[in-house]
Simulated assay, not measured.
Amino acid sequence: MRRISLRNGNGIPFVSFFAESAITVRTCSSCHYSNKSIPVKDKIGVNSSNLDDAVTLFHQMVTMKPLPSIAHFSKLFKTMIKMKHYSAAISLFRQMLKLGIPICDFILTIMINSYRLIHRVDCAFSVLPIYLKNGIPFDVVAFNTLLRGLFSENKVKDAVELFKKLVRDKICNPEPTIYIYNVVIDALCKDGNLDAAINILNEMKQKNIHPDILTYNS
Rank of each mutant, 00 (worst) to 15 (best):
R3I: 15
I4K: 04
F17L: 11
F18G: 03
S21T: 14
A22G: 00
I23Q: 12
T24R: 15
T24I: 11
R26V: 13
R26M: 11
T27K: 15
S29G: 07
S30T: 14
C31N: 14
S34Y: 05
N35C: 05
N35M: 12
K36E: 15
V40T: 11
V40H: 10
V40I: 12
V40A: 14
D42S: 13
K43M: 11
I44T: 06
G45M: 03
V46P: 00
V46M: 07
N47C: 15
N50F: 07
D53R: 05
V55K: 09
T56K: 15
L57D: 03
F58M: 03
H59P: 01
H59A: 04
Q60A: 04
V62C: 08
V62S: 10
K65R: 14
I70R: 05
A71L: 05
H72C: 12
S74E: 11
S74Q: 10
M80W: 01
I81F: 06
K82D: 13
M83N: 11
H85A: 12
H85Y: 15
Y86P: 01
Y86C: 04
A88T: 07
I90L: 08
I90K: 00
L97F: 03
L97Q: 13
L97Y: 00
K98G: 02
L99G: 03
L99W: 07
I103A: 08
I103C: 10
C104Q: 06
D105P: 07
D105R: 14
I107M: 09
R116N: 09
I118D: 01
I118R: 01
H119T: 12
V121R: 02
V121D: 05
D122V: 00
S126W: 06
S126I: 07
I130T: 12
Y131H: 13
N134E: 09
I136P: 03
D139I: 03
D139W: 00
V141K: 08
A142K: 00
F143K: 02
T145F: 08
L146T: 05
L147T: 01
L147Y: 00
G149R: 01
L150M: 08
L150H: 01
L150D: 01
S152Q: 15
D158A: 15
D158Q: 15
V160A: 00
L162D: 01
K164Q: 09
L166C: 06
L166Y: 03
V167G: 00
I171E: 02
N173S: 11
N173Y: 04
P174N: 05
E175R: 10
I180Q: 13
N182Y: 07
V183D: 06
V184A: 01
I185M: 10
D186R: 13
D186P: 03
L188G: 02
D191M: 05
G192V: 01
G192A: 04
L194A: 12
L194R: 14
A196I: 10
L201C: 08
L201A: 04
L201S: 05
E203F: 02
K205S: 13
K205M: 12
Q206P: 01
K207H: 10
P211D: 07
D212L: 06
D212R: 04
I213W: 10
L214W: 14
T215Y: 09
T215W: 02
T215F: 05
N217Y: 14
N217W: 09
